[in-house]
Structure formats: C-alpha cells, structure tokens
C-alpha cells in the first residue's frame, strides 16, 4: 500500500483547469476606459467627466464581484488542485514584484530630490544664475516656494502607525496558523484584529493628512517635499485600503466556512500582500518621516 501511495504522489496531476470564456474582462476594460476618459475631462475642468468616472467605477465593482465570485465558486467546487495553486503563487509573487517596482519609482524620486536636485539648486552656479540665497536642507519645498511649512515629525502618529502595521503582520500570521490548525473561531478573531489594526492605521493616516493641511501648511503642492510625502504615503495608504478590503472579504469567506487547512491560497495571497504594504511602510517610515 505504501508503494501505491508513493507512486500516486509521484504521478503529476494530468489536467490543468482551463477556464471557460467569460464576459468580465472586456467589462473591466470598458470600465477603465470610462474612468480614464472621465478623469481626463475632470482634470481639464469639465465636470461632466464625473458621470463617466462614476459609471466606470460602478462597472468595475460589478465586474470584480462577478469575476471573483465565479473564481471563488470554482475554487470551493474543487476545480483547483496543486498544479493550479502553484500558478497562483507565481502570479501573486510577480504581481507584488511589479508593485515593488512601482513604489521604487517614487522612492527614486525622493532620493533624487534629497541627494541630488535640492543640493544642486544651492550650488554656486544656481545661486548666481537662478535663486540667490537658497540653501540646501531637507525637508525642502524648493527655492520657488514662499510660504512656511512644518515637516511631519516621525515620533508621533507615524511611529504609532509603524507599531500598528507591524502588529497586524503578526496577527495575520496567527490567523494563518489557526487556519492551518482548523481553529475557525480563533482564525476569525485574529483576522478581525488584523482588519481592525489596518483600519485604525488608515484613520490615523487620514487624521495626519488633515493635520498636515490645516496646521502644518504641508500640502501636495508644498514643493518636492510635499510631492514626495503625499504621493508616497498616499499610494501606500491606497494599498493599505485595498489590503484591508481584501482581508475583509477573506474574513467573510472564512465565516462562510471557505478554505481548507491545506488549500487556501486566497488567504495566503492576501497575507503576502499585507506583508508587502507593511514592508513598504517601513521604507516610508525610515526615509520619508524619520531620516
């Protein structure tokens, strides 16, 4: 019998599940087209564009609910075995890698401004020809920015946020362990804790933005410091929001009894994503807030 079991393990799964045609992809393209069109109009002061954006967004939500719903049904119906699972793992890894590179562009801009462009604007040549009296320092809003602003300090809310996100990385791991041990109650509890930490983070971040705009006079348009600060933290916050929504979906799926101790890539994929936003935050905390 042992022999039979081992040969069975060696035989590779023979059929890869190639899905049936579906209309959702083109709906996704249509929605992106509508949103892009609308945004281009709105950015150029044509308010009618909002209609297009709204239509596109509704379509996008509908598309995601239907598409993901179909995949979830297939997954729970047992259509995805080990072979498909490995595909999902590769796919998610490279998706996260592409996200890392996206943040890389903005970190690159930050380092360029700090190491190169701001100091360069204070060299003798720039002083003589362009902006006399500009001295290089960070944070800087550049030589053309007249108003005063205060930079965001690292050891208030940002430090607290670091603690929140790092803890949420731990809680999501506890949730994972409980999923593997088939302890559904604890799984739901730890996952809920993760979502709660994430939502608290987002709320703190929103409060921080209000604080920046109203009390520090720190805006998106506050030179290169404001640009890099808000674009980096903004895109990160957007990713945390997405991650929190995904975790919430996973929570409801756990509640409905989805996933098995040995088959739950949706959970793991979201956990990977959550760790990814965590790591990006560490980069932000160090290079945007702290140093």
């Amino acid at each position: 019998m042992a022999h039979v079991a081992s040969t069975q393990a060696q035989v590779r799964q023979q059929h890869y599940s190639v899905p049936q045609p579906m209309p959702w992809p083109i709906m996704g393209s249509t929605s992106l087209f509508l949103m892009a069109l609308g945004a281009a109009f709105v950015f150029n002061d044509m308010r009618a564009g909002w209609v297009s954006i709204a239509a596109g967004f509704v379509l996008l939500l509908y598309m995601m609910v239907r598409w993901f719903g179909e995949v979830i049904r297939e997954s729970e119906g047992g259509r995805y075995g080990r072979w498909e699972d490995v595909s999902f793992r590769w796919g998610m890894s490279f998706f996260i890698f592409s996200e890392v590179m996206f943040f890389g562009a903005f970190f690159g801009a930050l380092f360029w401004a700090r190491v190169y462009s701001v100091p360069d604007l204070a060299t003798l040549e720039s002083q003589a020809l362009l902006w006399s009296g500009f001295s290089a320092h960070w944070p800087s809003a550049g030589p053309g920015f007249a108003e005063q602003f205060s930079p965001m300090s690292a050891w208030g809310i940002p430090a607290l946020n670091t603690l929140l996100l790092l803890s949420s990385g731990v809680t999501v791991t506890f949730a994972h362990w409980n999923l593997i041990a088939n302890q559904r109650g604890k799984l739901l509890l730890w996952l809920a804790a993760t979502v709660a930490l994430g939502v608290t983070f987002i709320c703190f971040q929103a409060y921080e933005y209000i604080h920046a705009y109203h009390e520090l006079n720190l805006k998106l348009s506050t030179g290169v410091y404001g640009s890099t600060f808000f674009m980096l933290t903004g895109f990160h916050g957007f990713h945390v929001t997405l991650g929190a929504i995904m975790l919430t979906v996973i929570w409801f799926r756990c509640l409905k009894g989805h996933f098995k101790p040995d088959h739950h890539f949706a959970f793991e994929g979201v956990a990977w994503y959550w760790h990814f936003v965590d790591v990006v935050w560490l980069g932000l905390f160090i290079f945007v807030y702290w140093l």
Partner: peptide, 15 residues
C-alpha cells in the same frame, strides 16, 4: 501642483 519635475519646487526635469 506637485513639483517632481519643476526646479522651482526642488524637483528636477532631469529626474
């Protein structure tokens, strides 16, 4: 109003 590529705000077109 960001100034990634605008020297007046400390950015740089070369970036």
């Amino acid at each position: 109003g960001t100034t990634f590529f605008n020297a007046a705000g400390g950015g740089d077109p070369v970036l």
